[in-house]
Amino acid sequence: MGSALISGVCFFLLLSPFPLAFSERCHPHDKKALLQLKKDLNNPYILASWNPNEDCCEWYCVKCDEKTNRIYDLDISSSVPDTNLSGQIPPSVGDLPYLEFLTFHKLPNLVGPIQPTIAKLTKLRSLFITNTGISGPVPDFLAQLKSLELIKLSFNSLSGTIPSTLYQLLNLTSLQLDRNQLTGPIPGSFGSFKKPGPDLTLSHNQLSGPIPSSLGTLDPQRLDLSRNKLQGDASVLFGSKKRTQILDLSRNLFEFDLSPLKFPPKSLIWLDLNHNNIYGNIPLALTKVENLQQFNVSYNHQLSGKIPQGGELQRFDKYSYFHTKLCGSPLPPCNNKQVNI
């Protein structure tokens, strides 16, 4: 009788449509932190699935590790800007100690500074805060998060200077701080990044001053410094033995001789130097670049001489050479005076 009753209870539990408390994967500490985070963000629609009576490993925007059942990925992103979500980054995000990936994306009413609580996330590999109302500085405490591989803080309202301490992040492969209001120079300490150095996207800011010569020791695949107020000699960024794929220095105040520079013949696909004060001739070495897909030297008024024939240089239209003293295809033919400049 007793064993039959027990068997019946077990059978009922197996068929029961109601989840059992002891079957929940989510760690209670993580669940508490997430529910507080939801409250602090004004209970937005995007987090409507965060029901306290359900397993938080099944919630939208959250991923749990299959072995530890601890939350390792929190991605609060909206396909369209979510104006219902408002407030600052909640301090409770720092109470998710196993977090490796943290994303806030397309949240225009997420405001205030990048909270110091993020410094508690010692396992963090990716910090992705984009298209938000976040303001204040790029925090110096990011250098404490030694596991960071990606920092992407694009399309925000960050201001101030770039922390010189970021070079201490030995695992960093990409630093993207574009489309903010950052000022000051590129830190000279960046030349001390672990080689070959992270890809750097610092465009659409108000950075100024010269390129640190130490930056020439790095070899990132992507370097985008466009649309700033940087000046002086950027020739240290070039070289035939580098692995550069994308180099964009456009719309700055750079002033250097292009003539003697060398380029990686196999890797380079994008070279944009428009709207600077670059002078000299187009180097013959550019005809050896095999896969050049984007090229622009327009609005460098002191560039002169004949455009070398061959390679990929004639596939670009006249607007890639506009407002220079260059001549030859795809521009009009040179006269004797232009050739001898």
Rank of each mutant, 00 (worst) to 15 (best):
L5D: 08
L13Y: 05
P17R: 05
L20P: 02
C26F: 13
P28S: 15
H29T: 10
D30Q: 04
L41T: 05
E54C: 07
D73Y: 08
D73A: 12
S78R: 08
P81D: 01
S86V: 01
S86N: 12
D95P: 02
E100K: 10
F104Q: 04
L107F: 12
A119D: 10
L124C: 06
L127P: 14
N131A: 13
N131T: 08
S135K: 04
G136E: 05
D140W: 01
L145W: 06
S147L: 08
E149D: 07
F155E: 14
N156P: 12
S157M: 03
T165R: 11
Q168E: 13
S174H: 04
D178P: 00
S192V: 01
P196T: 04
P196K: 02
P198N: 02
L200F: 06
L207N: 09
I211S: 04
L215M: 14
Q221D: 11
N228M: 09
V236D: 07
T244L: 15
E255M: 01
D257M: 05
S259H: 06
P265E: 05
S267L: 04
W270A: 02
G280I: 11
Q309S: 12
E312C: 15
Q314E: 15
R315P: 00
D317P: 12
H323E: 13
C327P: 00
P330S: 08
L331Y: 03
